[in-house]
Design a protein around this nucleic acid. Structure first.
Lengths: 172, 172
DNA sequence: CTGCTCGTTCGGATTGGACCGAACAGTCGG
DNA sequence: CCGACTGTTCGGTCCAATCCGAACGAGCAG
């Protein structure tokens, strides 16, 4: 039965997506839902996702909301005033990853930098204390994070092919 | 008492490091240990880390091993045949982050790509089945991951300033 | 209005990770 | 040899996140 073989192959890929999702800080169920939607030719409703993923209705509801907020899937109100909603996987995965990156990493980096800046000014205001060592340590952190932020900003402004081009040209 | 103010500032920065550590998939204790080591002028032994972080001896032992494996701190056998070991924070944080990145992200990406490649060949071997849709889906994933890997490889070959230069030049 | 289905939200069970304390092995000074 | 100290390992606890089932509100068909 080759149909089973095909299903097995798809299953393996979906499991790979599950692992990747965990690496991005998402849950296993989120990875599976995205994987199923990615391979489904059509948008799927929550009952359909329940059947195809094996997860409970409530889990699908929560997970789809999370994925929708992240932009990894798209929510469509199918039909006129109908209640039934449908979800489809976002195809431009790269740009989605960029956004996810921004929502999490960039936020944290900015917050850290603010902390570092504030710490530096507070240390510098303690003139009569010997705070050179601490100031140097904070400055190190600040520079590292600043570099990181610069790179992240650049990564978000350009498409992956543009970035690859930029690096290749620089190499030459 | 300005000394308290200084300690408070350092504490705040260390807490920021804790949060960043969590973002990198590390534990809170790992962030604190690294932070304390970063601000300590000298290498610290496990008992000293116990006292300064407030964590149990066993926790420090586990966490230092983890951080050492990741390359975020360096372990030194202080003295000749002595048992006492000491730890110091790695200063070239950027390069360390690159390595951590490689150890985790790159590994996962490579594994995923192997899965995708294998899935493609297996799908193509089922000639009598209609697997075009699945093949296209897997191909999409493969390309996205391939782009990601290219960028990561480039990011690991160059220093941050070089990367920033490359992007800036491309912009012009 | 009634029955059916859909989607959300809540409390509770389960699981995995973080952390601790105790026990253990090894080393040095006496 | 003995006692003090260091570092590792193991069993157990605690907590947060995941996931489920049940209850609820709402629309639609009849």
């Amino acid at each position: 039965m080759e149909t089973d073989e095909r299903a097995a192959v798809v299953e393996e890929v979906v499991e790979s997506i599950e692992r990747s999702a965990e690496m991005y800080g998402l849950s296993r169920s989120a990875g599976r839902v995205y994987g199923v939607l990615h391979f489904a030719g059509e948008p799927l409703s929550i009952p359909e996702l329940v059947e195809r993923t094996g997860y409970a209705k409530s889990t699908i509801s929560t997970v789809t909301r999370r994925l929708t907020r992240l932009g990894l899937i798209r929510r469509r109100s199918s039909g006129g005033g109908g209640k039934r909603v449908q979800f489809a996987a976002e195809t431009e995965l790269w740009f989605i990853l960029q956004e996810v990156f921004q929502q999490y990493v960039h936020r944290e980096i900015s917050a850290s930098q603010r902390t570092f800046d504030r710490a530096l000014t507070r240390l510098q205001s303690l003139d009569d204390e010997d705070t050179e060592v601490e100031e140097a340590r904070v400055e190190e952190l600040r520079e590292t994070y600043s570099t990181l932020e610069t790179l992240l900003n650049a990564s978000m402004e350009y498409s992956p092919s543009e970035l690859a081009d930029a690096i290749e040209q620089y190499d030459g």
